[in-house]
Write a protein that binds this DNA or RNA. Sequence first.
RNA 1: CCGCCCUUAGCUCAGACUGGUAGAGCAGUCGACUGUAGAUCGACUUGCCCCCCGUUCAAAUCGGGGAGGGCGGACCA
Length: 332
Amino acid sequence: MDTYELMTRNTDEVITESEVRALADDPDGKRVYVGYEPSGVLHLGHLLTANKLIDLQEAGMEVVVLLADIHAYLNGKGTFEEIRETAERMRAQFLAYGLDEAQTEFVYGSSFEMDEDYVLDLHELELETSLNRAQRAMAELQSGETAKVSHVVYPLMQALDIEYLDLDLAIGGMDQRKVHMLHREELPSLGYESRPCLHTPILADLTTGVGKMSSSQGVTISMEDSTEDLREKVNEAYCPPTADPEPDDDGNDRHNPVLELFHYHVFPRFDSVTVERPEKYGGDLVYDDYDTLAADLDSGELHPQDAKNTLASYLDELIAPGREKLQELRAD
RNA sequence: CCGCCCUUAGCUCAGACUGGUAGAGCAGUCGACUGUAGAUCGACUUGCCCCCCGUUCAAAUCGGGGAGGGCGGACCA
């Protein structure tokens, strides 16, 4: 696999292809970032971007993980003390998951977001950005919640972080694209260069295949799930025998979440996947790539129940180190 | 600062005028059917009716006070 392909695989959007190709030509020592609101327990959404970070480390880039404590504060997630504590747990879980410690820099937002230059630039950005634009860029805002002033400052800071962390590339889920677009449009007017961006997909809701898997509602798979929890959650997932399900009764797009998890979580981390299957159903199957597995589900060669059993055990393997780390931290 | 509207099940809301301690849809749980899930069918569950005080035999409902949320007006020195 060439470097560009490694860097961009499993993404929904590359901005822009030519800029990322230029990076792929000489990735060594270049800096890529993703920002997270500190969360005490990582879930599959976090891990999806982490997979991309791992790809980029493999390509030779340096990874910067922003532990966005001030953002969390602006979003009403608690006191700085509480946020700091969850951030440390988050950091430990990322390392347990497989980010290379030597190539990963964890940075607290509060370590630079209160510097005078930063704050003055932030005010300049406030001056240039309409409320409407800022509010639309705020991915973290729960639907129905009314925006506070903090909520519109939030995305502006995200845009500015990309400059102040001295980055060459920004990544995030598709829900972050409006922030990244705001960054690309507005940073040049502050005299800064805008950076290329990669956007990872948003996983579908596990039980319906409609909309996104959310940590605030519905079923989420996280680092604290036991083997048994995983088995149950995956088994209850929506999984028609096709990669391309019909829309639901309301006309909403529907995905196959079980296949998505194979695609974005299992195959990126395992070279080959073995489906253990009783003899009466045809015996074991081995897959080296996602497409073959998806095609077999579609054709009926692979039954959804076998796919689910297999998925649960591979996810368990992925989560196990982080789960142990969490238990250690809680034992203290 | 002034005015108007909202607050009832996990969610969206009915019920309030005409007091008798609550309902619908969705969600959820459990079964049936599928070697998964969904769909479908069957059964079941769900409540400090925002808080306090008062009127009353009796208050989600009436009166007073308060809290939270939304919207608008005024002010623009």
